[in-house]
Amino acid sequence: MFGLHYKLERKSIGLALAIIGIGSIGGLVEIAPLFTIDQTVEDAPGMRVYTPLELAGRNIYVREGCYACHSQMIRTLRDEVERYGPYSLAVESKYDHPMLWGSKRTGPDLARIGGKYSDQWHVAHFVNPREIVPPSVMPSYARLLRNPLRTDDLGRHLRAMRAVGVPYTDDMIANATADAIGQATPGGEAADGVSKRYGEATNVRVFDGLPGELTEMDALVAYLQIVGRLTDAAYKTAGK
């Protein structure tokens, strides 16, 4: 073996190829089958996609780096299931490009945050976390309430998401901007379009408490309220 190596270490290209060869095996064995083994991602008929407003909110979550403190992955451990709810399924992040499972819980897990608190609570908490939860170390995101949400390019976002495999229809792409506004404007005509395209159960509300204004806070709260609720597969699996 050492004799063989004595030869190999004299050839830079040979050495390079050996490194690539030896180094590729692990990744190939572990990643490729995740696309071929059906069991990897559970079936979830009826799972819906993010609405444009929720997607915009998710992008704010990404932009602000919330993953630095929050996981979105409840592990198959008794204490996590008892504290946070049913363990996370792979299918629940099927439309998550990228996934936001996280690696650090400075704050609590958020995989089941959707519907846990009211919109007002989220807004108040983002504006000043320590007023609502005194020991909190979370930063204030008051500025989200001041920033108008950019909606004109949401169609292009949906199209890019479709390019990576999320089943957005032409209708959804064409109406992305209108739907984003509609979801935060209950009662309006645009709101009906949201329910039509994304389902009756879609939350259509003034998420940020400021009717008539579409802020980044609307988007972020709309997103948080749907985290873990695109499908109820996890609850069904847990019930079994």
Binding site: I31, L34, M99
Partner: peptide
Amino acid sequence: YSLFSGVQDA
């Protein structure tokens, strides 16, 4: 938007 999602992305 990253090419992979969910478990494969992870």
